[in-house]
C-alpha cells in the first residue's frame, strides 16, 4: 500500500476512529492521542493492509483494543475522577439543567452506559456498521451484540422518555 492508497483509504476513517475513541475515552485530548496512535499503527502496517478485506472494521478493532488498554491502565490511576463523573451524572436535576440542550442529554445517557454498550451504540447507530462487522470488531457473537444493542437503546429511551415526561427537555 503506497502513501496515496493510504490517504485514500485510511484518512476517511480518521473521523470514525476519533468519534469511536471519544465515545470510549470521554476525553477529547485522550481521543486525539488514540486517533494519532491508531493512524500511526495503520501507517506502519500499510504493507499488510492490502490483505485486509475490510480496512474500516480493521481500524475500528484496533481503536477498540487501544482504547480498552488506555482505560485499563487509567482505571486505577483515575478511579477518583471516574467516581466524580458518575456522581455528577447521578446528581439529577442539577446536571440536567446544566445540559439544557436535549442533544447533550442523550450524550449524558450514552456516557452513563457500560463501555461495551457505549461502543456498540457508537458503531451501530452513529457509524452504521452492520451487525456482522460489529461482531468482528467487538469479538462477540450475534446474539450478544443484539442483546447489548437492545439494552443500550432501551436504557437511553427510558431516560429520554422520563425527561420528556417531566418536561425537562
Amino acid at each position: 500500500m503506497t502513501s496515496e492508497d493510504y490517504n485514500k483509504h485510511i484518512l476517511p476513517v480518521r473521523d470514525k476512529i476519533f468519534r469511536f475513541s471519544l465515545r470510549l475515552l470521554s476525553s477529547e485530548a485522550a481521543a486525539k492521542d488514540a486517533t494519532q496512535d491508531v493512524l500511526m499503527k495503520l501507517w506502519n502496517r500499510r504493507a499488510k493492509l492490502s490483505a485486509v478485506t475490510n480496512v474500516e472494521a480493521y481500524a475500528m478493532t484496533m481503536t477498540k483494543n487501544l482504547c480498552y488498554d488506555v482505560l485499563k491502565s487509567k482505571h486505577h490511576k483515575t478511579l477518583e475522577l471516574v467516581h466524580n463523573s458518575y456522581s455528577e451524572t447521578n446528581s439529577g436535576l442539577g446536571s440536567q439543567i446544566e445540559a439544557r440542550d436535549e442533544v447533550d442529554l442523550v450524550k449524558k445517557f450514552i456516557d452513563a452506559l457500560p463501555e461495551q454498550q457505549r461502543a456498540i451504540i457508537q458503531l451501530r447507530d452513529v457509524e452504521q456498521f452492520s451487525n456482522k462487522e460489529i461482531e468482528d470488531i467487538m469479538g462477540m457473537n450475534s446474539t450478544s451484540v443484539r442483546v447489548a444493542l437492545s439494552r443500550a437503546r432501551k436504557k437511553i429511551m427510558n431516560e429520554l422518555k422520563k425527561t420528556s415526561a417531566y418536561g425537562l427537555q
Binding site: R14, K107, M157
Partner: peptide
C-alpha cells in the same frame, strides 16, 4: 431527539492532523 443526536454525532470531525 435520539436520532438527531446520532445525526449530529456522525458529523463530528476529528481535526486530528496526521503527522505522517
Amino acid at each position: 431527539v435520539l436520532f438527531s443526536y446520532f445525526e449530529t454525532e456522525s458529523k463530528t470531525t476529528s481535526q486530528v492532523e496526521v503527522d505522517l
